[in-house]
Design a protein around this nucleic acid. Structure first.
Length: 734
RNA sequence: GGACGAUUAGCUCAGUUGGUUAGAGCAUACGAUUCACAUUCGUAAGGCCACUGGUUCGAAUCCAGUAUCGUCCACCA
């Protein structure tokens, strides 16, 4: 070791280094576990270690949250790869049905002034696919910039051919088992987006409005929505309400209403809050979830008042065809002229709006497809603890048992409670969407006949259901659809169940719970052993990063300016599982300095060891006790860091390494070494030289999962003739 | 309304499951230095660990309550 590489004499330049190093990794094939086996770096019978990358949506570009996710997953993957595990990290992207379609529709409306009906299904889909493809390509480039050691040969897309087959197969199996059914149910209809949306996609916004009290026969009813009241022929009160004890359940009362006399029926139901308003209400089952449930319980008639476009139907008489907002005042006026308005008050309440389109939700009863979460079915082969093969179970039970038995461990643990709370309140999952982009429901109709199959029926005359599936239906299959299911593949055999699912806590219910449901049902096992939930990355002030606020930090800008390594370190160091973190450029800058620090340490060590004698069988350098003590201290650190990584305390592991390298190695050990290296005692000098090299190489190995680029680059400079890259080096074993 | 968190130095956060004198980074002050370091080093100051009570030989840590902030869920006619 005589030559000091010229590059090393200048400050570390991450921009030049990182992209070059990534290409070297790609060319090596080491992201692919089978290549590692072929080259002898992983044993053929090694225990697998699998992470499936939560697929970013093809709606745009990656943000800091993705960068955090990748930093943590790559850290685990590189750590386990260095530990000799058969390590697979499988990448992919998500078509994100509603989000993507509405993004493209918005663009088209803005640029061309057209809506989707102007374009037609085929043309719109073409446009969306083009957008999705471009978005996908950008995302892939971004993922590469972060240093992610994902196996690109296995890349998947939630809407590609193999995943589509998985979706149709999954649908058919559940359909045949009676777990998917079509039903008239009240759904959240978004008149603006012309689609249903799930409960989870609703955003409640505060609205100031009027609260009216109307005379309804002998009662006074309260409402903020007079326009729905036309069909109200049931008046409901709590059975224990003494004020209305004289009225009996089922009693008929003739009264004067908006468009003339009607006969109302008294219903007693405990869903009524005696404290609210007058304690009496009329119900509109077609347009209210609570009312619908009351109507179901008492087997009452349901009538539609408002159409899909938010306009009043002929049942409203003279108001027919009017928009809700226009009609409301006129209806109140009419009631007032009839002397039926008791009083009105100012009222603030939460209205439901669609997250994607901002449209006001108008509940409607519609034909939709559902997954029955409480329906019993026989599970064929079960590896789920507490649910035996061949026993009767429900999807809800699968979701709950896998976690309560700790077969699936959630980190941080306290999210268990939130998870169970959610499961308890879970209703049947509405999986149909009235949009065009996504997996079309594999059901065909011919007259009154209905056919569900993986492929379209061969005979003529069948038409396919117009709806598509909720995007979470396909992502629910993600851990096994990516591994080739429904084919019986070797990948499934080897890599499933996966080890860790690492994702943001905000999609615990959307996604994690649905993966548990789908995997339990289709595979009879768990999708992963551990769920690691990371927090939200916020700006320095603690605000969410968003486009509208313009406070986002672009991971690519970070990579350009400070290096991806620095960005990764800043993200990993920003906090523990489940807690939000604040990120500022200053923080990232600090870790750029750190990368340069290691660079300089390496320069010092290399220039100080050029005259170290080469070792061979006859001439061995003896390590003196003082130096052995330094190595022992480092080893103790490595043990500590290893434990922290295995127990998911990544921030702590990172901090320990950082602290060791800067405050111990650089500030103490190197400073102490200077007189020894310049001294006359050759034995002491050689011992120290060898020790410095040992400490440097060990430090690089331990730091590699955190800062892969700078460590790999230094590795190649330190050991120039080795063909073994740091990525496949062995984790220091003590 | 229900659930779950958080509250520690000026700021951002640790504190590994109860154990010496509560730590780090940034920022601040003072000093050193051109030495592997454009990006260096040392020293210092800075804390009623939100508050009240309890358990314990011992509490930032466990329990109960209060306050403030945050997140999620539900949503009322």
């Amino acid at each position: 070791m005589n030559q000091i590489p010229e590059k090393l004499l200048k400050p570390y330049d991450p921009k030049e280094t990182e992209q070059r190093i990534y290409k070297t990794w790609e060319a090596s094939g080491f992201f692919n576990p089978e290549t590692c086996i072929k080259k002898g770096y992983t044993k053929a019978d090694a225990k697998p270690y699998t992470i499936i990358l939560p697929p970013p949506n093809v709606t745009g570009i990656l943000h800091m949250g993705h960068a955090l996710m990748i930093a943590i997953e790559d850290l685990m993957i590189r750590y386990y790869r260095m530990n000799g595990r058969r390590t697979l990290w499988l990448p992919g992207t998500d078509h994100a049905a509603i989000a993507t379609q509405s993004k493209v529709e918005k663009d088209i409306a803005k640029k061309e002034g057209k809506n989707r009906h102007d374009l037609g299904r085929e043309e719109l889909l073409k446009r969306i696919e083009k957008f999705a493809q471009e978005s996908h390509d950008t995302i892939v480039e971004q993922v590469k910039r972060t240093g992610a050691s994902v196996d690109w040969t296995r890349e998947a897309f939630t809407l590609d051919e193999k995943r589509s087959l998985a979706v149709r197969t999954a649908f058919k199996n559940m359909f045949d088992d009676g777990l998917i059914y079509q039903g008239k149910r009240i759904v959240n209809w978004d008149p603006k987006g012309q689609t249903t949306i799930s409960d989870d996609e609703i955003v409640y916004k505060e609205e100031k409005t009027k609260f009216y009290y109307f005379k309804y026969g002998p009662f006074v009813i309260g409402t903020s929505r007079p326009e729905t009241k036309f069909g109200d022929k049931y008046v409901v009160m709590h059975p224990d309400d003494k004020r209305y004890a004289e009225y009996k359940d089922g009693q008929k009362i003739d009264l004067e209403w908006i468009n003339g006399p009607i006969t109302a029926t008294v219903i007693k139901d405990t869903a009524i809050d005696m404290e609210f308003g007058t304690g009496v209400m009329t119900i509109t089952p077609w347009h209210s979830v609570v009312d619908f449930e009351i109507a179901e319980r008492h087997n009452l008639d349901k009538e539609q008042i408002i159409d899909k476009y938010g306009k009043l139907l002929p049942i409203t008489g003279e108001f027919s065809g009017m928009k809700i907002t226009d009609a409301r005042a006129k209806i109140v006026e009419k009631l007032r002229s009839k002397g039926l308005v008791e009083k009105e008050e100012d009222y603030t309440h939460n209205t439901a709006t669609a997250e994607r389109t901002g449209g006001m939700i108008e509940p409607q009863i519609m034909n939709q497809w559902f997954v029955a979460v409480n329906k019993k079915f026989t599970i064929k082969n079960s590896n789920i603890e507490g649910i035996a093969s061949g026993s009767e179970t429900t999807l809800k039970e699968i979701m709950s048992k896998t976690v309560s038995s700790k077969q699936i461990q959630i980190i941080p643990e306290y999210f268990d409670k939130t998870y169970f709370h959610w499961i308890e309140n879970l209703r049947d999952w509405c999986i149909s969407r009235q949009i065009w982009y996504g997996h079309r429901i594999p059901v065909w109709y011919k007259g009154k006949e209905i056919y569900c199959g993986i492929e379209a029926p061969k005979e003529e005359g069948w038409t396919q259901d117009e709806d598509t599936l909720d995007t979470w239906f396909s992502s629910g299959l993600w851990t096994f659809s990516t591994l080739g299911w429904p084919e019986k593949t070797q990948d499934m055999e080897i890599y499933h169940p996966t080890d860790v699912l690492e994702t943001g806590y905000e999609i615990l219910f959307f996604w994690v719970a649905r993966m548990i449901l789908m995997t339990g049902y289709h595979i009879g096992t768990i999708p992963f052993h551990t769920v690691y939930l990371h927090g939200t990355v916020r700006d320095a002030k603690g605000q969410k990063m968003s486009k509208s606020l313009g406070n986002g930090i672009d991971p690519i800008d970070v990579a350009d300016k400070y290096g991806a390594d620095a960005g990764r370190m800043a993200l990993i160091m920003s906090g523990s599982a489940g807690t939000d973190s604040k990120l500022s450029e200053d923080k990232i800058k600090g870790y750029k300095h750190f990368a340069n620090k290691i660079w300089n340490i390496a320069r010092f060590v290399l220039t100080s060891t050029t005259d170290m004698p080469e070792e061979n069988a006859s001439t061995k350098i003896t390590i003196l006790p003082a130096d052995q003590a330094l190595i022992d201290a480092l080893n103790a650190q490595v043990v500590d860091v290893t434990k922290d990584i295995e127990e998911y305390r990544f921030y702590m592991a990172a901090e320990k390494i950082y602290h060791y390298i800067w405050s111990e190695f650089a500030d103490v050990i190197i400073e102490q070494s200077k007189p020894i290296l310049a001294g006359a005692d050759i034995a002491a000098k050689n011992s120290r030289q060898k020790t410095l090299l040992t400490i440097l190489t060990t430090s690089l190995k331990v730091l590699h999962p955190f800062m892969p680029f700078v460590t790999e680059e230094l590795w190649s400079l330190i050991i120039p003739n080795s063909d073994k890259m740091l990525i496949v080096e062995n984790w220091p074993i003590i």
